[in-house]
Every structure is written in structure tokens, then in C-alpha cells.
Design a protein around this nucleic acid. Structure first.
Lengths: 204, 204
DNA sequence: AATTTAATGTTAGCAGTGTAAACATGATAG
DNA sequence: CTATCATGTTTACACTGCTAACATTAAATT
């Protein structure tokens, strides 16, 4: 009883892609399998996504929207260092819990964000979130605020990458004081850790 | 006049893979093109690399060796904060100049380092370099040293990722005080930046 | 030195991929 | 009611990773 036209294919493809991407990693995602999953012919997705990269861009856009939401602090409240720590924690938590999507968002799968306006906007809004919070924390110049944003962002981004990678780097010489145990300690005391590194940053 | 047996195929494949990987990114690397480039049949590489991931692992191993070398500080000298800054700078410089190889080393192309002993060793030696330097900087416990390593590593790793990504994130609202200009400022004043963030870390 | 064995190469072929071109269907605008 | 256009299908091409069966030659064993 299914009709020739699907009706809502694009959104269904995106949803499905997000799911499969997070489950198996974006490398394992194929347009054909996606089409099959949606009960549609192999090339139907091409009516909605010019290339595979366009599909990637859509998945990444969804990712940035979720990340933005996860890092959003209610704007009415007064912002304190604690809030910044919370943002950082939420960011890292997102990166660790949505590792495969995170790879797509920050890897090279989508080469040039500027080619995908929605992706650009969602990515920038993540930054804008952070910018706003810093601007409410202290009356810094725009330059200083941007500097603090980039610094915090690179810190939490780096932690996501290293915390993930360390798990995979072998425990030959760990013995409770090596990188793995240490990473695990950091991961379970994220707030403390971020508080520490943020203190220096905010005072600067 | 070429003989049936190549003689040095494995090494030539690795070298060639490193070159192509850095030039075009590891996604564009195919075993078949690699074989053609080395003047050998499509499936000859399979005598030396069980799967494509094994080849990736070899390229990543080379990458970690180079990274280790780039971050090596002569062990005889007394280590100062300046040396740590230099290590960080060299690390970041490597990441930015060998971006595609860096992706392979820190992405998910090679799932489990433990399956590739040489990769494991070369990756760990990068860490070990850092560990040694920190241990010569101050008489901290092994735990504290490991903590400082992970923190520094995540900082420089994060900077590599963000500095690269920001270039690609659109400049709609940059106007000289946005993320792009800021990232560029940080990139051209890496030493200052690392000095700043390291000061807090070392004192902790 | 002759012969067996193992390492390294080739050929042929399968299943899967991204993508383009030509065609089919049906919702919608005139 | 009809023409148009968005959306779907079929077919096809060039490419991929990888396997199996076979060829060649270097190395080990007798």
C-alpha cells in the first residue's frame, strides 16, 4: 500500500543517517544501505543530497545543534566560573557519548563548512554560546573574549580526543600511574579538572 | 628487465602510502592505486598488509615516530618551562603541517592500537618523551607527572584540532575579533600562548 | 648440488561503493 | 484539464577491499 512518493524521505534519511553514523561510525555509512533502510531505491537519496558529503554535512549539522543545546546556559542568570565549568563538562560529555558523530563534526569528512550554510550556522552557534557566556562573566574586550573561547574550546576538544585515544593506546607501562589510569581519573573528576584549568584562563 | 620479485615492496608501499596519505588524506588512499604506483599487481600489497587497516597502522606508526622526534628534547640538559613550551610548539607545528597524517594517527581509522605492536610502541614513546621532560622539570610523583602529561597533551592536541577547524567555519561574524582572527593570532604567537597555559599547569 | 618449502608475486572474480543518465510517476500550478 | 517539475526507479560505469587459485623464485633442507 506504499505510494510511489515517500513523502518525508529527506528527514527520514537524515534521522537514519544520524542513528547509523553514531552506531557504526560515518565510514560505515553508505548511501545504498541508507536507501534500503528507508525502503527506497539505491539512488533515491540523490534527489535530496547531491553527494555523500552533503549527507555528512546534514548529520554534522544535527550534531552541532545537539552540542549547542547541551552547552547552553540559560541567558538570564548571572554567569559564574561554575557555569563555564558546566559548559565544558557538558561539551566533553557530549564528545565522549557521541564519539562517532563528534568525529564527523570535527574530522575532515566535511571539507569546507562554508559550502553548507546550515552546518556553518549550527557550528557557529556553538561558538556563539560560549562567547556569550564569557562576555557575561567579565567585561572583557571582544578580542579577549574570543581568545578565551578558543582556549576553552581547544581544551575541552583536546580532552575529548585524548581521553578517547588513551583508552586505546595499550597499558604496558601503566601500572596505576600511567596515562590510562590518569585519563580515567580526569574523566571521572572532570569538574575539578576544568575548574583548575579555567581558573588560570579567567584570570589572564 | 624488472624481476618477478620486487625486493623491497613493503617499505616502498609504506613510503608511498605516507606520501599519498599526507597529500590527499587517508580516505583517498587505495591499495590498488598504491600497487599501481609501485608498479606491482593490484593484490600484491596483501602479501605485506593483511587489511587496509594494517597499512593505516604502518603509516600512523611512521607518523608517531616523526612526532616523537619533533618533540624530543635532548635528555642531558636540565629541563625548564621553556623546554616544555618548545615541546608543545613542536607538537602543534607537526599537527598543523602534517594534518592529514595527524588525522590518521588520532582518528578512528586504526581502531585498536594494541593490535599493532609497532604502532603502540611509537605512540607510547611520544607520551614517554613528555613524561621524561616533566619528570626532569620538578620532582613530582608519578601520578602528578602523568596528570601534567595528559593535560599538556590534551591542550596541544585540542589546539591542533581547533586551529584547523576554525579556518573552515566561516567568517560571517568575524570582523577582526572573531574566532578566525583569534585563532590566527594564537597560531602566530604559539609560544606566548603555551607559556601562559603551562604556567598554571606547572604550578598546580 | 638437488630438491623441497615458504615467501612473494599475478590473475580472475565477488560483493559492495559513489554517482551519472535516462526514464517513470504523480503532486501541484496554470 | 493539462503541463510542469519534484521525486522516485532502473541501469550502468568505474572504483573499492578482499579472497582464492595459481606462478615464480628465494631460502632451507637433505
Amino acid at each position: 500500500m506504499k505510494s510511489y512518493h515517500h513523502g518525508n524521505l529527506k528527514q527520514e534519511l537524515i534521522d537514519c543517517a544520524c542513528r547509523l553514523c553514531e552506531r557504526d561510525g560515518y565510514t560505515k555509512l553508505s548511501i545504498r544501505s541508507l536507501a534500503k533502510e528507508s525502503g527506497v531505491s539505491q539512488t533515491a537519496p540523490y534527489r535530496h543530497f547531491e553527494t555523500k558529503e552533503t549527507l555528512y554535512a546534514s548529520v554534522a549539522t544535527e550534531g552541532f545543534k545537539k552540542l549547542s543545546k547541551a552547552c547552553h546556559i540559560d541567558a538570564d542568570k548571572k554567569i559564574t566560573k561554575k557555569h563555564l565549568v558546566e559548559i565544558g563538562c557538558n561539551y566533553i560529555e557530549f564528545g565522549l557519548k557521541n564519539a562517532n558523530t563528534y568525529d564527523l563534526m570535527f574530522g575532515t569528512a566535511v571539507g569546507n563548512f562554508a559550502e553548507y550554510p546550515e552546518l556553518l550556522e549550527s557550528a557557529n552557534s556553538t561558538y556563539e554560546n560560549m562567547r556569550l557566556s564569557f562576555s557575561k562573566l567579565a567585561s572583557d574586550s571582544d578580542e579577549v573574549i574570543a581568545f578565551k573561547c578558543i582556549t576553552l574550546w581547544s581544551m575541552v576538544h583536546g580532552l575529548v580526543g585524548i581521553l578517547r585515544k588513551v583508552q586505546v593506546v595499550g597499558d604496558d607501562f601503566d601500572e596505576g600511574v600511567g596515562p590510562i589510569s590518569t585519563a580515567s581519573v580526569i574523566a571521572t573528576n572532570l569538574e575539578d579538572h576544568l575548574d583548575k584549568v579555567l581558573t588560570g584562563l579567567i584570570q589572564s
